[in-house]
Simulated scan of single mutants.
Amino acid sequence: MAFDFLEPISNELIDFINTLPPQSLGKKVVFHTESEFPVLQNATIAIFGVLDNRGLQVNKAVDLVEIRKTFYSLYPGNWHTELIDLGDIPQGNEQEDTYYAVTAICTQLIKQHVFPVVLGGSQDITYAMYRAFDQLDQMVNIVSVDGRFDLGNDEVKHTATSYLSKIIVNEPNNLFNFSNVGYQTYYNSQEEIDLVEKLFFDAYRLGDVSNTISIAEPVFRDADLVTFDLTSVKSADSGNINTFVPNGFNGKEICSLARYAGISDKVKCFGLFNHNGTTQESMLIAQVIWYFVEGFNFRTVENPLVNANNYLRYIVPVDDMELIFIKSIKTERWWIEFPFTTNVNNKMKRISLLPCSYDDYLRACDQELPERWWKAQRKMVL
Rank of each mutant, 00 (worst) to 15 (best):
F200M: 09
L6P: 09
L225Q: 03
F3G: 02
L86E: 09
F220N: 02
F176G: 02
L225H: 01
K166H: 14
Y163E: 04
L25H: 12
I289V: 08
V58G: 00
Q367F: 15
V58D: 01
V181A: 00
E192F: 12
Q91C: 07
A286Q: 13
C365W: 09
H113V: 12
N93P: 05
E94L: 13
I110M: 08
V219L: 05
Y361F: 10
G295K: 03
S235F: 08
T159Y: 01
S162M: 02
A258H: 11
K375F: 04
R313H: 09
P339R: 08
L20D: 07
V39C: 12
T212E: 14
Q123A: 09
W374S: 02
Y127D: 00
S73C: 08
L225W: 02
V65D: 09
F176T: 14
S122R: 13
D360E: 07
F37N: 01
T98P: 06
F325D: 11
F296I: 04
L175D: 02
N188H: 00
N345E: 14
S282H: 06
A203S: 10
N307V: 09
G92F: 02
W335C: 08
I263R: 09
E217S: 08
T227M: 05
R68C: 00
L40M: 04
S144M: 06
D320Y: 07
W290Q: 15
T33Q: 04
D359Y: 06
V245T: 04
D359E: 11
L305M: 11
G207S: 10
V169G: 11
E82W: 08
D229Q: 02
N177W: 11
E332K: 13
A128S: 13
V62H: 05
W374D: 00
F48G: 10
V219Y: 03
N345K: 06
T70D: 13
I9W: 08
V114A: 10
I254T: 10
E171C: 00
V169F: 15
W290D: 01
N250K: 14
I67C: 07
F48E: 01
A223Y: 07
L362D: 11
T331Q: 08
V29G: 03
T227G: 03
I142W: 12
V245D: 02
M283Y: 14
F325E: 15
N242D: 15
I142A: 02
T70I: 15
S10W: 05
G49M: 03
K268L: 14
D137T: 09
E36G: 05
C269D: 01
F298S: 06
K347G: 05
T212W: 09
E322M: 09
I125A: 09
D4C: 03
I326N: 02
M348T: 15
Y183S: 05
F270S: 11
W373Q: 00
I125G: 08
I89E: 04
D134T: 04
V102E: 00
L195I: 07
L40F: 03
T185K: 12
G77W: 12
S282M: 04
Y314M: 08
A160D: 05
I67A: 10
E171A: 06
N343T: 10
V288P: 10
N177C: 13
Y186E: 00
